[in-house]
Design a protein around this nucleic acid. Sequence first.
DNA 1: ATAATTGCAAAAGCTTTGCATGGCC
DNA 2: GGCCATGCAAAGCTTTTGCAATTAT
Lengths: 139, 139
Amino acid sequence: MKLEKIRDFLKNENLKITPQRLAVLEAVIKLGNHPTAEKIIEFIKKNHPNIAVGTVYKTLEIFVDKGLVNKVKSDKDVMRYDAVLVKHHHLYCAKSDRIEDYYDDDLNKILEKYFKKKEIKYFKIEDIKLQIIGNFTNK
Amino acid sequence: MKLEKIRDFLKNENLKITPQRLAVLEAVIKLGNHPTAEKIIEFIKKNHPNIAVGTVYKTLEIFVDKGLVNKVKSDKDVMRYDAVLVKHHHLYCAKSDRIEDYYDDDLNKILEKYFKKKEIKYFKIEDIKLQIIGNFTNK
DNA sequence: ATAATTGCAAAAGCTTTGCATGGCC
DNA sequence: GGCCATGCAAAGCTTTTGCAATTAT
C-alpha cells in the first residue's frame, strides 16, 4: 500500500496520522513474512529509537480492528502480523517458525463450491483458511 | 481412549504412570472442546486438589510431544488442547472463543487429490488443517 | 483549543523453570 | 534404591494498562 493511500485510509477512519502509525505499518509491510511484535519494534527503532512498546501493540491492535493488518498464529509461537490483504493461505514449517503465504484461486473456488453444496448445519461460513503444514525443501 | 490403553501407551514411551498424568489426560478427554490449561487444572482440582500448575503444563507438553494431545490455537486466545487424534478441522466462532470439531472425509479426499496434482514447489505437505471461521447459528 | 495519541513504567496474564521432596518401577 | 516426576514458588515473556505529557487537527 502506498503512503498516500495509507494516509487516506487513516483519515477515513478518523485516526490521526502520526509518525508512529506510519512507521508500524511500514514495518509490517517491509518486513514481510509475518513479523512478530518484537521484530516490528526492532525495525522501527532504527529510525525512531524512542517509540514505546505499548504504542506498537496499541497501533497493531487498531490496524487489526480496522482490517489493515491480520493476525497470524501457529500452534507454537507468539502473535504475528500480516499486512497482505488479498485472500491467501499459509504454509507452516513443521520444524521452525517459518510461515509463507500461499495463493491459489483455483483452490479457493473448489472450497467455495464444495461448501456451497455441503452446508454445515448450525454454522454460517465467513472465511476459510488453510494451514498447510510440512517442510520447505529449499533453503 | 481407554484407561488400559493409556497405561500401555505411557509404558511404551517409558513414561511413569502417575495419577497426575492419568488425570490430565482424563481431563482433556472428558472436558472435550479444546479446553485451556486453566479449565484442565480446574477440572483436575476437584478430585486432586494439590496438583501443581507446573505439573499440568509439563504433562501436557509431554503428551503433545508424544502425539497424544494436540495444541489448538486461534488468532485471539491462549493455548488450547485437544485429545481427538482422528483427522479433523475446526470451526471457529468469529465472535467468541468457541471452537468445534469438523469431520469430513470427502473434503479430505478432495484436498488430497488437489494437492497431489498441484504440487507446491519447495514444499512437502505433511498435513492440512482448515480453519473455518464464521458464526454458529444455534445456541 | 482540545481531544487523541504517545512514552513510560508498572501490572497482568500465561507459561516455564529450578530445586528439594516424594513416588513409581 | 535409584531416578523420574511432582509441588511449590519464583521468574520469564509477551502483551496490556494507567496516566501525565505531547501532538495532530
